[in-house]
Design a protein around this nucleic acid. Structure first.
Lengths: 207, 207
DNA sequence: TGTACATCAGTGAACGCGCGTTCACTGATGTAC
DNA sequence: TGTACATCAGTGAACGCGCGTTCACTGATGTAC
């Protein structure tokens, strides 16, 4: 009940959040258990009480990330849909809300764990790689379904494949995160999302 | 002159190419000098003859990558321009050539070193981070210049900013590489480039 | 209500291994005169 | 053409440090009867 005992209760959660930040900034291999326990205020054995070994940390970290970000997106686009009955307008509103949410992050987006793991894939076992794969497929399915709804009312521009257009949103976000981080221009990411929004508008614009 | 002496002469080059591959698959921290010298067939001291320490390897690796990829793109789009006097058609042809080049890579694109370094930025010193930054800005300038040429003949779709459209190509490539790697769908990357090409067409299409 | 036992969330000390780095040295090739 | 010296591309052995992991143990809290 006291602050101390409340702190004690979620040492595991503190480790996870410290680990996520460190992995996004230095990579998984360079994220040492030593630094995590120093930050979380427990001993090394305490770490191994919560995670059998470092590979378990990698898996839990990714599962947590996928679930959190998935819920965030689903929630955001559900809210956008409630404001609109037209699927195109709903998607456009959702994209605008996404851009606003991203531009509200004061220090910019901290990074995508899927991208980070992708560039260190040989550090991870098959289970983690499959997790990553399924996450990317889930993003595709998410947006693909919306685009399909839209295409039932508005004819898409010929030559634009809906699967590709669905993938493009994830690609633009992942690529935008990288550019924004490297250039230290946080706004770049939300600008890319707004440009993607424009692409969607052009794609379904009557010709 | 013999195979052996020729091999001996470019141990440094062998280290660099082994290192690049390993960094793209495991990250910089997990790429050990030990594995590089085993692959290159020299001793550890041999490595330190060529690179004062590991940070020098990181810098040389990135410089080499930036120069190589820059030359590749410049060459590709110069060839495309020579076939076309219209800047829009030249760019569209260049993008098609890029997509073809990418789809010809049998095992898919090996990865972008800039993206890899970005997700491990705290491992590197300011010099390397600046190198990365300048590289991203160079990509933006490259494409931005082309888009400007095009916009002098064709009015861009309102609401499409040319800087953002320039960044979008890099973003789509970086994001496409990640998705292609994670899904093990090499074709995804060239499909994204072709979709970007379609976006350029839509942007400059007369309305 | 009291006691016995189980579970939770750790502690403390030790382990071996691999890592990046240093240092004195060396054989082959190139250059000056 | 022969000799002296310099440079190039390494070798071999040793270094200490930090890393992930193990193991026996522990105090606080929860549960059964």
């Amino acid at each position: 009940m006291t602050v101390v005992s409340a702190k004690k209760r979620d040492a595991r959660e503190r480790i996870l959040s410290l680990a996520e930040q460190s992995v996004l900034e230095k990579g998984f291999a360079a994220t040492s258990i030593e630094e995590l326990i120093a930050g979380a205020g427990i001993t090394k054995s305490g770490f191994f009480y919560h995670f059998r070994d470092k590979t378990v940390l990698a898996r839990v970290l990714l599962e947590r990330y996928i679930e959190r970000e998935g819920a965030l997106f689903d929630d955001l686009f559900r809210r956008a849909d409630e404001l609109n009955e037209d699927p195109l307008h709903g998607f456009l509103v959702g994209l605008r809300m996404l851009a606003e949410m991203l531009s509200d992050l004061p220090t910019g987006h901290p990074g995508c764990l899927i991208a980070s793991y992708c560039y260190q894939e040989r550090l991870f076992d098959q289970q983690v790689r499959d997790l990553n794969r399924d996450a990317v497929l889930a993003w595709r399915a998410r947006f693909r379904e919306r685009l399909e709804q839209i295409s039932m009312r508005y004819a898409p521009h010929p030559g634009v494949d809906l699967d590709d257009l669905a993938d493009m949103l994830s690609a633009v976000v992942d690529g935008g995160i990288i550019q924004a981080k490297v250039l230290k221009e946080p706004k770049l990411l939300s600008r890319q999302v707004l440009l993607y929004r424009e692409v969607v508008r052009m794609t379904f614009q009557p010709r």
